[in-house]
Computed example of a mutant assay.
Amino acid sequence: MNASAILSTRNITKKFGGFTANKDVSVDFPKGKLTAIIGPNGAGKSTFFNMVSGSFAPTSGDILFDGKSVVGLKPHEFAKAGISKSFQITNLFPALTVLENVRVAVQSMHSAYDLWTPRSRRAEWVEQAERLLELVGLQDKRRERAENLAHGEQRSLEIAVALACDPKLLLLDEPTAGMSPEETRVIMDLILKLLEHRTVGLVEHKMKLVMGVSDNIIVLHHGELLAQGAPDEIRSNEEVKRVYLGKGNH
């Protein structure tokens, strides 16, 4: 494993019956940096994201986090290890308030809720949830029901929920999907702020945005690794230009 990487994949392959979604992908996510996963439709991005976030186990190969293999861990064990994820499809409790959504996530990382939980402990959970809402800019909406938030605000709330386990690595699946330019700016500002204390990996389709904010870019094509490097390296890579960027995008 690369010493500067928080997570590395080593020849990971994922097969579904006779179909190979990813084949022999070896990449690094450098510590404290933003890594973007890009590629055309059908490139294998979602399957790769699901493997590094613990939803799918690779058919073969290894995933190392902080130098230890995490292959075979259950999704909640990934969270306890320090890897948290936020999916493209909003995963919130719509009828609960903004604060309750985050408090439930905080509470789930500590213990099961029961009648004997001391009131002081419950107050700690609320305080932690309030801090996370402040971090993502939703403290003024904490009494609102989640279903009443604008799309961009719901994505910010999802990020707050994903931060409840205080992850070392935060993985985001298309965090700006369906957003207006203004909402996109707000989310990207938030993601860049989060980088001050953790590593971030994301799947993203907006090329201009990816090139502007990423430290490291992973390009997948037909389930295999096409290229990995800094934005300038990816921008000037002839293979990447040929299969993905197109003449108008670089």
Results as ranks from 00 to 15, higher is better:
F78H: 02
E77Y: 00
L133H: 09
S84P: 04
E124T: 10
A79H: 01
I89S: 11
V136P: 06
G82S: 02
L92A: 06
E134P: 02
N91C: 05
L133N: 04
A129S: 10
K80M: 06
F78T: 00
W116S: 11
L138I: 04
I83R: 03
F78Q: 02
L133M: 10
I89L: 13
S111F: 05
A105Q: 02
L132N: 07
E130K: 12
V98D: 11
F78D: 01
Y113N: 12
S108L: 03
R103G: 02
M109A: 10
V106Q: 00
E130T: 13
A112L: 11
E130C: 12
F87T: 00
S86P: 03
V106G: 00
Q107N: 00
T117P: 14
W125H: 11
L135P: 00
A79N: 05
A123K: 15
L132F: 11
V102K: 00
R131M: 12
V136F: 06
E144H: 11
S111M: 02
L73E: 09
P118C: 09
T97P: 03
P94K: 05
S84C: 06
A112K: 04
A81F: 09
N91L: 08
E100I: 02
L115S: 10
A79F: 08
L92Q: 07
E130W: 10
D114P: 11
R142Q: 10
L132S: 06
H110N: 04
Q107Y: 01
Q88E: 07
E130S: 15
A105T: 00
S120F: 13
L96G: 07
T117I: 15
T117E: 11
E130P: 11
G137C: 06
A129H: 11
N91W: 03
V104D: 01
I83M: 05
S120I: 12
V106A: 02
L99S: 07
W116C: 13
Y113I: 13
S86G: 05
I83A: 01
E124R: 13
E130Y: 12
Q128S: 13
H76Q: 10
S111I: 03
A129P: 03
K85Q: 07
F93H: 08
S108P: 00
A79P: 05
V98P: 07
L96D: 09
V136D: 03
A129F: 12
L138D: 09
W116G: 12
E134D: 13
L115A: 09
D114F: 10
V104H: 00
Q88N: 08
N91H: 06
K80R: 08
A79W: 06
R143P: 05
M109Y: 09
L132A: 09
L138S: 04
I89V: 11
Q139G: 04
L138K: 03
G82W: 12
N91A: 08
S120V: 14
A123T: 13
V136N: 04
F78W: 07
V102A: 03
P94T: 08
E144Q: 10
L135R: 06
A112T: 08
E100A: 03
W125Q: 10
P94Q: 09
V104F: 04
T90G: 08
R131E: 14
L73T: 09
S108N: 03
W116E: 11
A129T: 09
V102L: 07
W116T: 14
R122V: 15
M109R: 02
A81Y: 11
V102P: 00
D140C: 05
T97V: 06
A95R: 15
R119E: 15
Q128K: 13
